[in-house]
Amino acid sequence: NWYTAAEFWHLLFNNICVVGIWIFLGYLLGFGFFVSVYSITLTCAAAILICVFFVQHNFDGSYAHKTEGWDYLEGAIKGSSYLELPTVLKWFSADIGYHNIHHLCERIPNYNLQACHNQNIHLLRSAKTLRMVDIPDCFKYILWDCPSNRLTSIASFRQAAQSIDLERANEA
């Protein structure tokens, strides 16, 4: 999807270059070898970026809400995180760590996300900051708790269910 003729031509030129490089590398390395290595590399990169995307939305205290009463600004700032990444990973991921900025305005190009984040840091105080060490903990927030309107872990869900069972047993 493009907004201007210039974006269309950039996209077309980029696609022609990519396909040209694929053909060149296929001839140079052999098409079977190139497609095998390319497929494995692409699959691994996609898996890593899917995980990064997942943790930027699923963390303790993440804003999630039913459609009724949903707040766009709160959803953008508290429903996605700022993921601090080392410089090399910022480059490889096209600054995906500034995901909350992207949710505020998807038209900001990735090379301007850090500057936008730095200039508006005072407005992003309530945004969650995640670090690389926080990533494994985010994978446990996979259940939606309707009564509390929040994401929860399976362990927390079981603990709450046991508490309810104990209350019912004590009442009986």
Rank of each mutant, 00 (worst) to 15 (best):
A76S: 05
C138Y: 05
E167G: 09
F34I: 06
F59P: 00
T152G: 07
V19Q: 03
E74H: 14
K128D: 06
Q159V: 07
L83K: 01
K90L: 07
I23V: 12
I164H: 13
F54H: 09
Y111H: 08
F13P: 00
R168A: 13
C17I: 03
Y141D: 04
K140D: 12
N110I: 02
L130R: 01
V55N: 04
W9R: 07
R168K: 11
L73I: 12
F24Y: 15
Y38L: 12
Q159C: 11
A169H: 03
A76R: 03
D165M: 10
W2I: 13
G26C: 03
Y98Q: 07
D165C: 08
I135M: 06
N149V: 04
E7P: 00
Y98S: 01
K128M: 05
L166H: 15
F34H: 02
A46E: 13
C44L: 15
E171V: 11
C146D: 15
V52C: 07
P86Q: 08
T152Y: 09
E74K: 14
K128A: 02
G32K: 15
K90T: 04
S153M: 10
C138R: 09
T4R: 09
F92L: 08
Y3Q: 09
L143N: 07
W22S: 08
V52P: 00
L104H: 01
E74F: 05
N110V: 08
S93F: 05
S39V: 14
L49F: 13
K66F: 11
R168T: 07
C105I: 03
I48T: 07
F92A: 06
L166S: 15
R107Y: 07
C138D: 00
C51L: 14
L42Q: 13
H99S: 02
A160C: 06
H99M: 01
H10N: 06
I23N: 04
D165A: 12
Q114N: 10
E167K: 12
C146M: 14
I50Q: 12
C44A: 13
K140Q: 12
F59T: 02
K78V: 02
N14G: 04
A160R: 10
N1Y: 15
P147G: 09
L29S: 06
K66R: 10
A155I: 09
N120L: 02
L25T: 04
I96W: 10
C17M: 09
F8A: 02
Y72A: 12
P136K: 10
Y3L: 08
L11W: 02
W9H: 04
C17K: 00
L73V: 09
C116R: 10
L130M: 07
R107Q: 14
L151G: 04
F59W: 03
H103K: 05
T41M: 12
V52L: 14
Y27R: 15
G20W: 00
F8S: 01
L29C: 10
T43E: 06
S163Q: 15
F13V: 08
H65N: 10
I142K: 08
T41S: 10
L124H: 02
I16M: 03
W22R: 04
I101E: 00
I48H: 04
I50T: 10
K66D: 09
L28R: 08
S148D: 15
L124K: 02
Q119M: 14
K66P: 01
V37W: 11
A5T: 11
F53V: 11
V35G: 00
R158A: 12
A45C: 04
C51G: 12
L104G: 00
L49E: 10
